[in-house]
């Protein structure tokens, strides 16, 4: 009798106003799309972004009893998505060196039609940035995150965020002015 009692006790004594499923549904509803979009901007590959974001949600569900707070859950998801995208990207860079033409981000024909020339120029220019600079720019301009939030999410110092942003801005402006 004691064994199931102990196991069950752990469940009974655990309190939280939202359960993991509720939190999952709520955070998913509010943020799934934007997280996939964030991942797609970082990776330039929607399929992989979806996969990564889904993995992050599964992980969030598993640790909801520790997070317990949607703010924290979102920060956790964002960090997980950014980290996973970054490591995927680093992997892709290695792959790209050997197969330079098979980039996963080549837009399909229909997508290309839908993009405005302006967006096109910015996205093309972003591609030339090193991974860290691009991540900082995406988090800043798409995620609308503060320097401190970007630093936390990427696990780098605020000073690095600043310098990555400055360098990225400089390169992008040069590129965009050339093509304007």
């Amino acid at each position: 009798m004691a064994q199931p009692a102990v196991v069950y006790e752990e469940c009974v004594t655990h309190e939280s106003s939202w359960d993991a499923d509720e939190a999952l549904t709520a955070v998913y509803t509010a943020h799934y799309t934007s997280l996939v979009r964030l991942g797609s901007l970082l990776l330039r590959d929607t399929g992989s972004a979806e996969e990564i974001v889904q993995d992050a949600f599964v992980a969030m569900h598993g640790r909801w009893h520790r997070l317990r707070d949607p703010h924290k859950a979102l920060a956790y998801l964002r960090t997980a998505v950014v980290n996973r995208c970054r490591s995927r990207q680093r992997h892709l860079v290695v792959v790209d060196k050997h197969t330079p033409k098979s980039l996963p981000d080549e837009p399909s024909a229909e997508q290309a039609v839908l993009r405005t020339a302006e967006t096109d120029r910015v996205i093309e220019a972003m591609r030339t940035l090193p991974e860290k600079q691009r991540t900082v720019m995406v988090l800043r301009y798409y995620g609308d995150l503060s320097e401190a939030e970007i630093a936390d999410t990427m696990g780098i110092s605020r000073g690095s965020v600043k310098s990555h942003a400055a360098r990225a801005t400089k390169s992008l402006r040069q590129l965009l002015e050339q093509n304007a």
């Binding site: 499923d21 974001v53 798409y142």
Partner: peptide, 24 residues
Amino acid sequence: ELMRRALRDEAHRIEPADALPEIR
């Protein structure tokens, strides 16, 4: 502003399919 607009436009071209049942 250009950066915000371009990234947002690019992002909005992406409409992920519903994945909640799978995640759950």
